[in-house]
């Protein structure tokens, strides 16, 4: 039987996403993938997947057509910078706000 005094000192966090909240709100520009250029989407085979490998926040999926989880994407743009065929473009997030007027 463990000493109850030490039990108080134990911190047991549960593992889960989002302890900093929805980090997607940090983003200024969002990555948009052009599927006609993206290597796995174009060839229909698993290949390249550099965006998945180099994403710091694990929001890009390793699928034939990669998907980006915009809820948590911090918008760093590493995927766009490292894409060998420049299939990813960083687009200002404000363009996607409905009803917002832009000059």
């Amino acid at each position: 039987m463990p000493d109850p005094r030490f039990k108080i000192l134990t911190s047991a966090s549960t593992s889960g996403p989002g302890d900093a909240g929805r980090t997607g709100s940090w983003r200024v520009e969002r990555p948009v993938i052009d599927m006609s250029r993206c290597i796995p989407a174009k060839t229909g085979k698993h290949a390249c997947h550099l965006c998945w490998l180099l994403c710091p926040d694990n929001v890009v999926s390793k699928d034939i057509e990669p998907e980006i989880d915009l809820e948590y994407c911090k918008g760093c743009g590493i995927c766009a910078e490292e894409c060998p065929v420049q299939a990813i473009e960083m687009v200002p997030d404000a363009d996607f706000i409905e009803g917002a007027e832009r000059e």
Binding site: S15, G16, P17, G18, D19, A20, G21, R22, T23, W26, R27, H46, A47, C48, H49, L50, W52, L53, P56, D57, N58, V59, K62, D69, E71, Y72, K74, G75, C76, G77, I78
Partner: peptide, 21 residues
């Protein structure tokens, strides 16, 4: 890249800066 496991052990939404190495 192709045979690297797809299983993830780190969750998104953490406090690391954007673009953290």
């Amino acid at each position: 890249v192709l045979n690297l496991t797809e299983e993830e052990f780190v969750h998104p939404g953490n406090r690391a800066c954007s673009g953290c190495g």
